[in-house]
Design a binder for these strands. Structure first.
Length: 317
DNA sequence: ATCTTGACCTGACAGC
DNA sequence: TGCTGTCAGGTCAAGA
């Protein structure tokens, strides 16, 4: 599974930013009320009939600006997906009908036709007929295109907020700096970790310190920086914090590069995994050899979260 | 103020 | 086969 974190959300954003602006929303169908929290009257007056003007991102939250003066905030959480299907064409079909997502041998023939663009947690829903049982909200555009918000576990959400109040919205108020922005400096990270007794991994997952890191990239960055995830934040040396700072930027940047290619192409049952996990350093690689030293990757719990480490590269003491 | 824990939710999978 | 239990994991709220 590939849970949407900052790189995945950024990849979806950049894909949708090429497709949605200029589109006008004709209708909204809410199949699960809690997936789109907005009064019925607001959906009618501020979404339906509005044009999309921009698609932005802050942390793991996507912001779709509308010409009505409102914005749609989207959090995919673990299992959310956004699938855009271009109008007037048949929906895409899985390559061979197999149930195994990685076994389709046909990765290129259907690539690049632009009929469907999808991103988020990968499942068969991205390639099969939509709507399906995980579809929670459907946006229909005037040209017949559709945008499906699918979410198996229904933790994800969309909400409608006045454009002028987006930055002050509750979900952004406590959000920390963008790790790929200029404000993310070593001294910032140092000040956030100082005097903190919590595990460094727990601190990295706290969105108020750095926005957008999740379980995958926290593990990846800590391994690259050679820091054990259970270490207390305050125990890290300046040098270790510098390594961690650089590692966060590198793993996020690498992943955006890897994900960018898989998103803009046609998504079929073969392509839904994304490229980054194939190159993961430790995530979901327990039992396999560390790419740096060959030691067997271990899986432990840190703050109730599954955590992957190389016991040789990442020492506790 | 900081830290920990449980709840939310569904599907996949292991074990009996 | 079919049941039960466990795991996945971002975020919030409640409790320590």
């Amino acid at each position: 599974m590939f849970v949407p974190e900052l790189p995945e959300v950024e990849t979806i954003r950049s894909g949708l930013a090429e497709l949605l602006p200029g589109q006008r929303i004709a209708g909204v169908e809410v199949l699960l009320n809690k997936s789109l929290s907005a009064p019925e009257s607001h959906i009618t007056t501020h979404i339906a009939g509005a044009g999309v003007t921009d698609v932005r991102r802050r942390g793991k939250i996507m912001i779709v600006d509308l010409s009505s003066g409102y914005s749609l905030l989207v959090h995919l959480k673990m299992t959310g997906q956004l699938v855009f299907e271009a109008g007037g064409q048949q929906p895409a079909k899985p390559g061979t009908g197999t149930n195994e997502p990685h076994s389709c041998p046909n990765p290129t023939s259907e690539t690049g036709d632009g009929r469907r663009v999808a991103g988020g947690h990968p499942t068969q829903s991205m390639a099969g007929d939509l709507p399906d049982k995980t579809t929670r909200v459907i946006f229909t555009f005037q040209d017949g295109s559709k945008l499906f918000f699918n979410d198996q576990r229904t933790f994800g959400w969309m909400k409608l907020v006045e454009r002028s109040k987006v930055e002050r919205d509750k979900c952004f108020m406590a959000m920390g700096v963008e790790p790929l922005g200029s404000q993310f400096e070593v001294c910032h990270l140092k000040s956030r970790l100082k005097h903190r007794k919590a595990a460094i991994k727990t601190l990295l997952l706290d969105q108020s310190h750095v926005a957008g890191l999740g379980n995958i990239y926290a593990d990846e960055a800590l391994h690259l920086a050679q820091v054990h995830p259970s270490r207390e934040g305050q125990s890290l040396s300046d040098e270790e914090i510098e390594r961690l700072h650089a590692a966060i930027i590198k793993v996020l940047g690498d992943s955006i590069q890897a994900g960018g290619t898989s998103f803009t192409s046609y998504v079929n049952a073969n392509g839904i995994t994304g490229d980054y996990l194939h190159n993961a350093r430790v995530y979901r690689r327990q039992g396999e050899p560390c790419r740096a030293c060959g030691t067997t990757i271990d899986k432990i719990k840190v703050g109730q979260r599954g955590t992957h480490i190389c016991p040789n590269c990442q020492k506790l003491t």
